[in-house]
Design a protein around this nucleic acid. Structure first.
Lengths: 183, 183
DNA sequence: ATCGAATGAGACGCATGCGTCTCATTCGGT
DNA sequence: ACCGAATGAGACGCATGCGTCTCATTCGAT
């Protein structure tokens, strides 16, 4: 008995990441519980999405903590961050695309915290001379989210290999597509 | 009289890019026509989205043509492509996020054509030594779409400046965030 | 074994948005 | 000025999914 709330959320995240229009009934079935029970734990679909958002923020915040962004070269810190965030890439992808729907009415303050921390990493890298300064930290932050989401979708659709997740994101984000000049 | 189909599509694209859940009525109002008229021109919401998809594909294909991808260095060709695609970035962003919903049932063949042409550009760049070979053309193609979409969303949300659109995308995609080593 | 809490299945009403239809009005060509 | 086609406004039924409720069942602690 006693439904594992976290487990339900994880199942819901996995399902909604693939099919964002999934029904409450489908979510319940996927989690192996009844629709009524799902409603007993989450007031409604909106509450469910909010809970997923909260979980996603917490997970990503944990990834930020685990990555020790303040230590060592900024580029290496970024690699650690991508590695830590990988397990939650699907959830992130879902939330990012879901966020487009939030008509600015009430966005979770958590995103601002995350943005600030990621931006701070890029800024630190710029000040240390590791990152170029002609691309704003805000854009680099968005690009990081975007690439994580894009990669997650691509993996789900089988267009790229899951095992290359970290490599593709970090290498593209850090070095770009252009072949570096021999030095 | 006589509704301008293309104009309706453009208005719909602009609206749906910001609010993908917009009602058929909202789309009609935005286009300055009645809902009945909208239905007379597009069999239903699905048909409308399909028409938008078709338009997006055509526009992007036109961008590919205009960019002359086969001429000159691959990186410069990529810059031209981004520049040509910029006017339709919003539409692209909408279609990309909407494509996630297509449960593989029936994806427009047009995307495959576009993918092939973009991939070919990256492959050409790799063979010419312009682009690095450790990132697959498929991933670079996805990344290009992703960055265009991300940038479009960021501009819409006011997080980055619209005027830097081309620069942010091309510079990040080509050169990455890392400051290049002095040579 | 017993009892209470939690669950599952399903019914029910409600809200929303779609697609169709009707009818009066307006546009535009002749 | 006339007439047909196109449009706008709105009504209508329908389908879907949500949220609530009931009731029998099951789990788990005592």
């Amino acid at each position: 008995m006693s439904v594992d709330r976290a487990q339900v959320l994880r199942t819901a995240a996995a399902l909604l990441s693939r099919k964002s229009t999934a029904t409450m009934d489908e979510v319940a079935r996927a989690a192996g519980i009844g629709r009524a029970t799902l409603h007993r734990h989450f007031a409604g679909r909106d509450a469910l999405v909010r809970a997923l958002e909260e979980m996603g923020i917490q997970e990503f915040e944990a990834a930020l903590d685990a990555a020790n962004l303040d230590e060592g070269p900024a580029d290496e810190a970024l690699r650690r961050l991508v590695a830590e965030a990988e397990p939650n890439a699907q959830l992130l992808a879902f939330l990012v695309s879901e966020n487009q729907l939030f008509e600015g009415d009430q966005v979770n303050e958590g995103w601002a915290r995350l943005d600030a921390r990621v931006s701070a990493l890029f800024r630190r890298g710029q000040e240390a001379g590791t990152f170029r300064i002609d691309l704003s930290p805000a854009w680099l932050t968005e690009a990081l989210y975007g690439l994580i989401g894009t990669c997650a979708w691509s993996v789900m659709d089988g267009r790229v290999a899951a095992k290359d997740f970290r490599y593709m994101i970090t290498e593209l984000l850090l070095g770009g597509a252009r072949r570096s000049v021999e030095k």
